[in-house]
């Protein structure tokens, strides 16, 4: 009786320490020696205004540097898929015109994950759909790097960008699991929506302690003095 209890307590203590140690923001990756180096990227398109903002952020990037790109979309959101494809086409056209990075044109994929919770979904069934969403995220972020043809030393993508809502929380948990297990994990960057002027969104509040970089678009949102950065409007 005493032994299992002690073991359980030990495991809990170690897990708590581990979580505590990985909660502090990670150091930035070392400076890249070659300017021509590339960086794989994933962005979560959370539907509606969230997707539009996320795609505006994407539009500002050099696609020959951030390649390959993964657009993560919740199921039942064809509009976000359409918008992502349109952005890729537009970028491909401008890149091929400048003849720069012509190789990285069209190096993108769309990853569809189940929604953690549908709008107006019953609270009782939410844990089930959220769990399903989490398991799919874990498959893609934690498990798939081990499957051939990949080696396990690089994360499935080096950086993960998201701005809410709900479903991106499970993606973040999956990336966090990698850290807990000491596996390579993407750098997590959260950009709060342009719509949040005075207070954080629920997703923002939840993810603030977990992500590596927490960025807002109105200064008052950071009035509590806790972590976060403001660089003006990004969208």
């Amino acid at each position: 009786m005493l032994l299992p209890a002690t073991v359980l307590l030990l495991v809990l203590a170690v897990a708590t320490l581990r979580i505590y140690s990985i909660l502090s923001p990670r150091k930035r990756p070392p400076a890249r020696s070659r300017q021509a180096e590339t960086c794989s990227l994933a962005v979560f398109l959370g539907s509606g205004g969230h997707s539009s903002e996320a795609l505006s952020l994407m539009a500002s990037l050099d696609f020959s540097r951030y390649t390959p790109r993964t657009y993560i979309v919740s199921d039942g959101d064809p509009l976000s898929v359409e918008k992502a494809t349109a952005l890729e086409l537009l970028k491909a056209r401008t890149l091929s015109e400048t003849l720069r990075g012509a190789d990285s044109v069209g190096e993108y994929s769309i990853l569809i994950i189940p929604r953690a919770r549908r709008v107006h979904q019953n609270l009782l069934t939410t844990p089930l759909t959220a769990l399903r969403s989490l398991l799919v995220s874990i498959y893609h972020i934690t498990v798939s790097p081990f499957l051939p043809p990949f080696g396990s030393r690089t994360p499935v993508f080096e950086v993960l960008i998201f701005n809410g809502p709900g479903t991106c929380f499970v993606l973040c948990l999956a990336a966090f699991l990698n850290r807990f297990l000491g596996l390579p994990s993407p750098r997590m960057i959260y950009i709060e929506s342009f719509a949040r002027v005075k207070s954080l969104s629920l997703t923002g509040k939840l993810l603030r302690p977990i992500v590596d970089s927490f960025v807002v678009q109105w200064p008052d949102v950071l009035a509590d003095g806790r972590r976060g950065a403001y660089y003006g409007w990004l969208v």
Binding site: R28, C39, L57, L61, S213, V215
Partner: peptide, 15 residues
């Protein structure tokens, strides 16, 4: 677009 581009370049170690 330069704001987010710079932000991410810095985050990911691009000079």
């Amino acid at each position: 677009g330069s704001r987010f581009r710079q932000l991410l370049d810095e985050e990911m170690g691009f000079a």
